[in-house]
């Protein structure tokens, strides 16, 4: 219709990627869940009516933490490789990321085994147990979910189904992994530093 004077080709029409938007939204939502658990943890520090206390049983999982945090770097390196189309290097960094994640989970398993069988701390022992297993467990669940997704990508890339064209999706997934790592910094500070 003549009344509309704009030529439609004038400005390019660019909108943000929906994958990224959705992942960021998910991360905001997840952050709210973690906030509630963290607040509960902080509030209940020192409120248990019986032992064991964090001072008595918790050890700082330094090695685990280093592994998990460095996996953020390796996944970032993988992202860079896929952008450039270096699929073999991408797969290698990706696999390393997964390995680091798996070490972290294994470390948590060892820690929990000790807490449960040596120290007798379970989720219903006292408030510390309840909040500790919930918060750390919530994070561990996220790591496991993340590992499953990383695993899928690894399988696809080993079978040659991942290409440069997928780099956008890979980056969206990596965003999630960065989030999981970032949350660990908070959980670590709250549980092993403030809480002890």
């Amino acid at each position: 219709m003549s009344a509309i004077p704009f030529s439609s080709a004038a400005e390019p029409w660019i909108l943000p990627s929906r994958g990224r938007v959705a992942m960021l939204s998910l991360i905001i939502g997840e952050s709210a869940i973690f906030t509630i658990f963290v607040v509960a943890y902080l509030y209940y520090i020192g409120k248990s009516l019986s032992g064991p206390t964090p001072q008595q049983v918790l050890e700082i999982p330094l090695f685990n933490t280093v592994c998990l945090l460095s996996s953020s770097i390796t996944i970032w390196l993988a992202e860079r490789q896929i952008e450039r189309g270096n699929m073999r290097r991408f797969t290698a960094w990706w696999a390393l990321t997964m390995a680091l994640g798996c070490i972290f989970i294994a470390g948590t398993a060892v820690e929990w085994h000790k807490l449960i069988y040596l120290d007798g701390l379970t989720i219903h022992t006292n408030l510390f147990g309840t909040t500790f297993y919930s918060l750390v467990g919530l994070h561990a669940t996220h790591v496991v979910v993340g590992l499953c997704m990383l695993g899928l990508v690894l399988i696809f890339s080993l079978t040659g189904h991942v290409t440069e064209a997928n780099s956008e999706r890979i980056q969206v997934l990596a965003l999630y992994w960065h989030f999981v790592d970032g949350v660990w910094v908070v959980v670590f500070t709250v549980v092993y530093i403030l809480g002890r």
């Binding site: 997840e30 709210a32 869940i33 209940y44 989720i123 219903h124 309840t130």
Partner: peptide
Amino acid sequence: TPLTAAQIMLTIDRYLGGHF
């Protein structure tokens, strides 16, 4: 999400004997 978190805690209390 806070509701979900709180309900998870309640469920932990009711099923796993938590103390939130």
